[in-house]
Design a protein around this nucleic acid. Structure first.
Lengths: 242, 242
DNA sequence: AATTCCGCTTGATAAAAGTCAAGAAACTGC
DNA sequence: GCAGTTTCTTGACTTTTATCAAGCGGAATT
């Protein structure tokens, strides 16, 4: 099944907007869009389970996608939850033939899939693009290192605070109203805790820092107070670099 | 200060042995060794603290080097502990000008340092090498994902078991005698727990799986029993891929 | 409007890990 | 070999998080 010209152009526009693809010439992007697929996936859809063959690189345009692994005992570890501008499946770019984790849509999401061989070829051809990919992977790794640090030195309420602060970058002062982008259960697992613990920890965070919670909506009057409570147990100071 | 020809040759031999450098031509490696420095560092030496300028890529030849971060509250998070064949400082290869963590020698170590600009130049020139670097970084990231999973789904005794199993790869059966490569305190922090917890958890692991501990020496009669106890809480099965 | 379902909260309790303090064992340097 | 330091273990206790079970409340279904 081939795409209409309009669809291809749309995909191309989306790809062009990605910093990762900045070093690519237009005709290369056009080549990508020729073989790319764009789909709107419903909440709950499993894009693929863990350990399936890895032939595509995915880009999230909107919504949220959860990456996870399951243990033999049935426990689930959420590795990451991705949104606009995030890629997954990039392991395929360097010789990993199976997806190390599964992917599930946790909020209706638009996703573009590009055959990995196209990207691998271009990495070999264009070293600037190769650098771009390397940089992306390096950032991912750095984020993981931070994650490990957080899980060892921060308490549950602090991890929630840190999570909330990511959504109020730059607003260093003044009241902020935000609402949780996906189910609390998913946030809990993303932060490495049980839903019950999340619920109680959020309550404690409320008491300690004076924020208000109503359903998925969180109101923060004093960001600084939240920063004080949260970032004392971290090695970088707010606003933290990606 | 310039190196003797013999030193340069020695360095070159070490670099040639690295899978990461496999795509490099001999003359390029010779160029690296021209500007590289090789040193023997004593246990306890801090190679650099966190957030210092990042001008070199390091390769560990022997011994052990700990990468760590410290929080404002004074807690330490050990990000990794490296040995023969491991690199660090590779963040410098993609635009990160400061070391995100500090490095401390935890067992007398030989380390080679190479100016990063040399490597960056070569990545741009040789796309196969670029791929090699990307692959290295990708593996690092995968390992981090596993680490995060371990810390969420494994208990302290299980994490110790997993740690021990890394030293008895392939010996799927039969008794194994090994001894801990560095101080138990460092192992504890590497695994994200307190030394006291480590001590007790090791005791529990002993009771549960029938291994014996005397000082830094661990004797495992039945590897399978250890695997059963440890890997039930993991998403990959023993022997696990790197 | 009643029903069902799902996500979330709450309570009671258990398990795991951290903390503080003291002592034992191992390693150093003389 | 001995004194002194460091590393490791153990005990008593606290804090944190998980577990199990019940119940609440909103959204979708009929």
């Amino acid at each position: 099944m081939s795409l209409t010209s309009a669809q291809k152009t749309l995909i191309q526009t989306h790809l062009r907007a990605q910093p990762l693809f900045k070093p690519l010439r237009d005709d290369v992007l056009a080549g990508f869009s020729e073989y790319a697929v764009m789909r709107l996936e419903k909440k709950g859809t499993v894009l693929f389970p863990a350990d399936t063959p890895n032939e595509k690189i995915y880009l999230v345009l909107s919504g949220w996608v959860k990456l996870f692994r399951e243990t033999l005992a049935g426990d689930e570890a959420v590795v990451d939850v991705l949104t606009t501008g995030n890629f997954f499946g990039e392991f395929g770019l360097s010789g990993h033939d199976v997806m190390p984790y599964g992917a599930e849509v946790v909020e209706d999401a638009e996703v573009i899939a590009i055959p990995r061989f196209l990207i691998v070829e271009e990495i070999m051809r264009n070293s600037l693009f190769g650098m771009s990919v390397l940089q992306n992977m390096t950032n991912q790794r750095l984020q993981r290192d931070m994650e490990i640090e957080h899980r060892t030195v921060q308490s549950a309420p602090q991890r929630i605070g840190c999570f909330l602060l990511k959504f109020c970058r730059s607003h260093t002062a003044g009241p902020v109203v935000l609402h949780l982008p996906y189910d609390k259960t998913v946030v809990a697992h993303r932060l490495g805790m049980q839903p019950e613990t999340f619920s109680r920890a959020l309550g404690k965070l409320r008491d300690e820092t004076g924020l208000r919670v109503r359903g998925a909506t969180v109101e923060i009057d004093d960001v600084r107070r939240l920063v004080d409570y949260t970032c004392s147990a971290c090695s970088s100071s707010f606003p933290c670099a990606e």
